[in-house]
Amino acid sequence: MYDAPASEQKVNQKSTKIAANKVQVFYGDTHAIKDVDVQIEDKTVTAFIGPSGCGKSTFLRCLNRMNDTIDVCRVKGEILLDGEDIYDPKVDPVQLRAKVGMVFQKPNPFPKSIYDNIAYGPRIHGLAKNKADLDEIVEKSLRRGAIWNEVKDRLHAPGTGLSGGQQQRLCIARAVATEPEVLLMDEPCSALDPIATGQVEELIDELRENYSVVIVTHSMQQAARVSQKTAFFHLGNLVEYGETGQIFTNPVDPRTESYITGRIG
């Protein structure tokens, strides 16, 4: 039923990119994430699945400290990126987010031109030495975002004028432009139609070549299609984490099985 990707056999040899140890997240008085341990591998697509409100998005936002922008949110435990604790007081979230990019649920291009949307990250991080350099980065990112052919003739048109699917790929290209090591995607296809979803999923599969991708999704089919590893969250707990094929065909935990067969969710 689920075709395991050809690369599955090599997965085990990959190194850990992000390691979370006993992570707890509180929203005011609500205990949103309880004791989560997980190791996310490099050059792998990892999917977080689970019913609404299970904490998967919250946990994802911990990985590049986007939760810092919410006043009432507190995080305990440690999350290591390449062995360094990202919640260490010495870490500047700005520097962290350059390494751990993020793509959001709803496409959110800035009200600027397509070119300026892509160039935004490289400019603030000072990645380009000159205009030619920047042009190159923009083109490379748009190619990686699989949208270059569609927009190359109108780079200076506003990004908000694109279709939903194009906007989301633009946002992915924008995230790629800062040369991150990890890409976090929070339900990137939930606002898209099936054709655009297909294009974005294809893109995610290509991104695996260079990045560690973590994707939160509502759709189990999507998780099965794009990911090599899957983590199942339920009520703030990480219930089960393993090879995607195994989770979907032979879950260990009865809760995972109930979710996959549609009894909870």
């Binding site: 922008t69 700005v94 987010r97 990019g101 993020m102 793509v103 959001f104 959110n108 946002c171 924008r174």
Partner: peptide, 22 residues
Amino acid sequence: PQAMRDGSLGLGATKSETIKQV
């Protein structure tokens, strides 16, 4: 919309960069 701010912060912009440029 908050999504604009999130988009910029998610790219590693500081708050003031987000405000000034987005």
